[in-house]
Design a protein around this nucleic acid. Sequence first.
DNA 1: ATGTCTGTAGTATACAGA
Length: 282
Amino acid sequence: MRVATWNVNSVRQRVPRLLPWLDERRPDVVCLQELKVTREAFTDLLGAELTARGYEFAVHGQAQWNGVAILSTVGLDDVQAGLPDEPGFPAPADDPEARAVSASCGGVRVHSVYVPNGRTPGSDHYRYKLAWLAALKAAVAAGPEAALVCGDMNVAPADADVFDPAAFVGQTHVTAPERAALAGLESVGLRDVVRDHWPDSRVFTYWDYRAGMFHQDRGMRIDLILASAPVAARVRAAWVDRKARKGTAPSDHAPVIVDLDEAPDGDIGPVVPPPSARPAKN
DNA sequence: ATGTCTGTAGTATACAGA
């Protein structure tokens, strides 16, 4: 099963890139962020094209900003828009921003998330970001054992995940509270599978449009695929599709792609029989 | 040096968010 996540920075603008990319990479499950359209507009734009390619889709959208989706060829069950007890901005929000959608796809609980940017450390928006990450952790902790959290985390997990750590001191995306909030997701069992597979490599997923940042590979790794233990154990490949950042009218983010081995039959993860069922040794 | 791209309002160009 191939799973991908991509912040498309307006799906309306990215249709000419998204459809050829689906045809080339053939992901079974796709998490999209920053749709910047309503569900109705998404369906009008892409419904027929996605259906023709065998995808079901779940969209949590809004006009103008945010918006997340999951596309799947391997089932799309128990769709949930938003997070339980999701904070809003400005708080309290009677109409939370469209930043999370989850569904069960091929036996895995998949979350497509667009974490708030945070803007400036110490700001209201920064506090909202930390509260939002706490709500995401709670949602994952309360969910099934087999889980994937995919999306734009708007946090660089470590200094190796930004092109120049000195340039980011005091900026959002790298502060200790943000990294602690991300580590909170690891404390409920999630693994950063791209970093696990490329422990010493320069790997970025986002490059500012300005000043030739992509050309100079001055980027950040803020789009992550986080997997719970039974899913992380199935990861066969994990990589950033930099080709999608090149060419005409790209998003400023590249897709992240993970290939999973088939799940073991019958259950997830290794099955340890009860002591009474174990053959006696010698 | 604040460089680009996006959506909105509204019809030319300014603003805000990232």
